[in-house]
Design a protein around this nucleic acid. Structure first.
Lengths: 246, 246
DNA sequence: AATCATTTGTCCGTATGTATT
DNA sequence: GAATACATACGGACAAATGAT
């Protein structure tokens, strides 16, 4: 009769700590597909029973896996297997929905807020005269219900009056542009940096404290090459990797 | 007689905490150029005297600036003004030294170690048969003496026997390649991600705990398009931003 | 609308083995 | 060997968020 690995008890006094053994067992079950991406892990108390250890020990193992970005714990609900990082192309074409769908996941955009602002730096990058009123739009985008990015965009207000209504309705910048007669647009320049997520980002992106965000700073232009959008996107660094084509 | 802002004492009971006032004063002195990039700040005790506060208050102000990535404290030496982030192009051409010199800074590479290894993943990406022996090379690269990146490279051992000697001597991958008859090489594919720096990286890159590293994963190929190098570079995210040309 | 069971997060402990000084 | 520090493991209580009833 074959050994049932799932029921194999932890090995006390083996020189390997229990939390490490448990973490490795759960990790192998994730990588072999016993726990598929986005599925829910057994609760801490179930794992406690299964491995015959204290709940703290299970929690330590789960903390290791969370640290590695393999699982994500949600208070009051449970722990879930993280999806593999989504490959996000950084090319001329910039279409969040397309990029997410190409990876076989369901994109969604949520409008957080709209404001009319005067801001020197985006104005300069849009090539507009100083103190031109801009539309500033805050969004959160997700794939399969998991938040992927938080973005801030600036547009010339006079040209994109009412853009927010379309954004609100569709949750898609591309579609809002289309409604304003812009069928095609492309990346002009892109700068990429990274830093730890701040508390607001931790909240909106459902990130545990200390994780990093990838900051992608881009200027997008219409078919004639005129800048129409300055965008600063903060991706949850655990959930994407940016792919640059040469 | 004009007011000497440098000598303006801190404003107690103004509703703004002393550490915040001091942080803002030092920050403005940095941005106005009174403390140029890479210069050394006055010691904590000098600042203590100048502002007439306790050393803890000065330390808190400096901690804020370090958190923002404006200054860098080095134990036993002092605090230094961070350089502006170096724009690092991610294009077809991959030349660390060129990129750093283009920004007007002095590049330097230091070889940390060389090992012969068998590793499935880089072997596969190099398009070599499984279990082919590889040369794995660990480096740290810096600009103006400030560590910028930590990289691990894999090469086919049979083809690049003795590469490490040249690397040791010049600290440059390009020059070591040249000595092996490879005049030109280019990026094949690049993936970018980010995560908090681990303790070893904090040490080598002189990063305070909690900061992020930009992980750039690349396969480079010779003039014929054959992969010759798999490279994983971890940039100190505070000190560079990657610029992608479209 | 209010209550309840479930689940993770945080805190208080105690005991024990291991490594260092 | 003794003293010390540290990591490991366990026990229990309660807070906080969630989802269902």
């Amino acid at each position: 009769m074959p050994i049932d690995l799932d029921r194999l008890p932890v090995d006390r006094g083996s020189g390997v700590s229990l939390w490490r053994q448990i973490a490795e067992r759960i990790e192998s079950e994730i990588t072999t597909g016993a726990f598929p991406p986005s599925s829910q892990l057994p609760s801490e108390s179930e794992l406690t029973e299964r491995f015959g250890v204290n709940r703290h020990t299970v929690r330590r193992a789960l903390a290791v896996l969370a640290e590695k970005g393999l699982v994500r714990a949600v208070k009051g609900r449970g722990s879930f297997v993280e999806e593999a990082p989504l490959p996000y192309p950084i090319g001329r074409r910039v279409r969040f929905s397309e990029n997410v769908m190409a990876a076989g996941r369901a994109p969604r955009g949520r409008l957080l807020g709209v404001a009319t602002v005067v801001d020197a730096e985006p104005t300069r990058r849009l090539g507009l005269p100083p103190r031109t009123p801009l539309l500033r739009i805050e969004m959160v985008s997700s794939a399969n219900g998991v938040p992927l990015s938080r973005s801030t965009s600036w547009f010339e207000k006079a040209r994109f009056e009412g853009l927010e209504a379309e954004l609100q309705r569709t949750g898609s910048v591309s579609r809002a542009f289309a409604a304003h007669g812009i069928a095609d647009y492309a990346r002009l320049e892109t700068a990429i940096s990274a830093r730890p997520a701040d508390p607001a980002e931790q909240d909106l992106l459902e990130l545990p404290p200390g994780r990093a965000v990838l900051v992608v700073d881009a200027v997008n232009a219409d078919a004639e090459g005129r800048p129409i959008q300055v965008q600063r996107t903060r991706f949850a660094a655990d959930r994407v990797h940016l792919v640059v084509k040469s």
